[in-house]
Design a protein around this nucleic acid. Structure first.
Lengths: 244, 244
DNA sequence: ATGTGTGAATCGGTTCACAGCC
DNA sequence: GGCTGTGAACCGATTCACACAT
């Protein structure tokens, strides 16, 4: 009966926790000791009711009439998100994107050290990117085991991405971030997230199209240009559009 | 009364249209003439009912007992997504990420030509990246007007991202793709999408944590490691995890 | 016989509104 | 008085299941 009882947390909530986390880090840096759901909501670009409901899934960490203790909430949030220790990352694909990601550096700082970058192309092996040498794709299982890799980032062409995903899972890495513009299938025990720039641009294109497309031809009836834009986990009501 | 009557399309559907679009392009390349919702669903990593409902928002473009004509559906989809003409893009921020994006090239191919890269740092202005010279942030309004920029990509540090967003909107660019790890506020007439790598990694971390975290302490009752992973627009039921 | 298009049922998530506690 | 925590109402999106067209 110790600890906060691990409740089942809705997906939509999980996707927002990192945003709250970042807000809390900022508050802590600013030496703020207490925060209300109202103010935290503003920082995270959501509404206060959502903040309270989301946080309530982690446990009852607020104080009625007062708000949330920033340090304590930050600690609980770190724990929930598994940020109390590092998660070693391997980047697969040493092309344009893979190199940029490896050089980016923003990962290591935030608890996701890049411990290897691998590529199937033998001519790329040995090249150094930042302080890492590109290694052979064949060595992935050994690398994964020895360095405790937890997360794989796919930065390869779409054509080989499914194959790479299979290799990652086979090597025991079952958290995958996919940058390749293709749908990946992984077994149920693995988690996958995608980042697809073309898709994002096309979504923007859709709304822009709608907004300006009408006027000359067939202005239609009530098809206001309400192009809310923020799909996914955004979608506030009246207030200005907000992203993360 | 010409044309397909622009119905209001749900956000969740809009976010999937680009995925169908990509599948259709592949089918067209493979010279496939007809496709069923079942097969298209498989390619797009969703289920058939969703495909049919999604496509029905565009109009009744299928043939009962047969399926959808690939070419025709592709044409209608292009039109709906506004992909019948190019959308010029400006990248703001010539740092690591901005350069990588500018070099990426995958944009121009797909109808999103990068027509400018700007930076507030005078020492970066003039440097060439690919075949573009970095220009001054101050010139943004002129650049936007002259080159008909439709989309702005924010690849700056978080600290200045809101300011950049304001400048983009002021320059008449109201589709924004934000890579900076911060919440942005834009007026209702603008659309914004975010790509936040740290957030994605932290979401993966959450599920990984859950999956392995239990065992020693408080195994609890029914907290299966169902870590579905694919939040956002994924989330199939029984079948394996699927991303885009 | 086959596969779309769509109302109806269901589900997950958001918002409301207020009781409970500081 | 102020703000959290949470059932209840609501809303959008998904899934079901079948009438309808070919």
């Amino acid at each position: 009966m110790a600890d906060p009882a691990p409740r089942r947390i809705p997906e939509a909530t999980v996707a927002r926790l990192p945003v709250y986390f970042r807000s809390l880090v900022e508050l802590a840096e600013a030496k703020t000791t207490t925060i209300s759901s109202e103010r935290l909501a503003e920082m995270a670009g959501v509404n206060a009711a959502k903040v309270r409901k989301d946080l309530s899934y982690l446990g009852s960490y607020g104080t009625r009439g007062v708000g949330y203790d920033v340090q304590y909430l930050l600690f609980q949030m770190s724990r929930a998100l598994g940020l109390t220790h590092d998660w070693p990352v391997v980047i697969v694909g040493a092309g344009n994107l893979g190199q940029a990601l490896a050089n980016y550096g923003g990962f290591g700082d935030r608890g996701f050290p890049v411990v290897a970058i691998v590529d199937a192309d033998a001519s790329k092996v040995g090249h150094t990117i930042g302080d890492l040498a590109v290694e052979a794709m064949d060595d992935l299982p050994a690398i994964a085991a020895e360095r405790g890799v937890a997360i794989g980032i796919i930065a390869t062409p779409a054509a080989v991405a499914q194959d790479v995903a299979d290799h990652l899972v086979a090597a025991g890495i079952n958290s995958v971030l996919n940058f390749a513009p293709t749908v990946l299938n992984v077994p149920a025990e693995a988690s996958i997230r995608k980042v697809d720039l073309a898709v994002e641009l096309q979504i923007l294109s859709f709304y822009q199209q709608r907004q300006q497309g009408f006027g000359s031809v067939e202005a239609a009836d009530g098809v206001a240009g309400a192009a809310d834009g923020g799909a996914d986990t955004n979608g506030d009501g009246p207030r200005p559009n907000v992203s993360v």
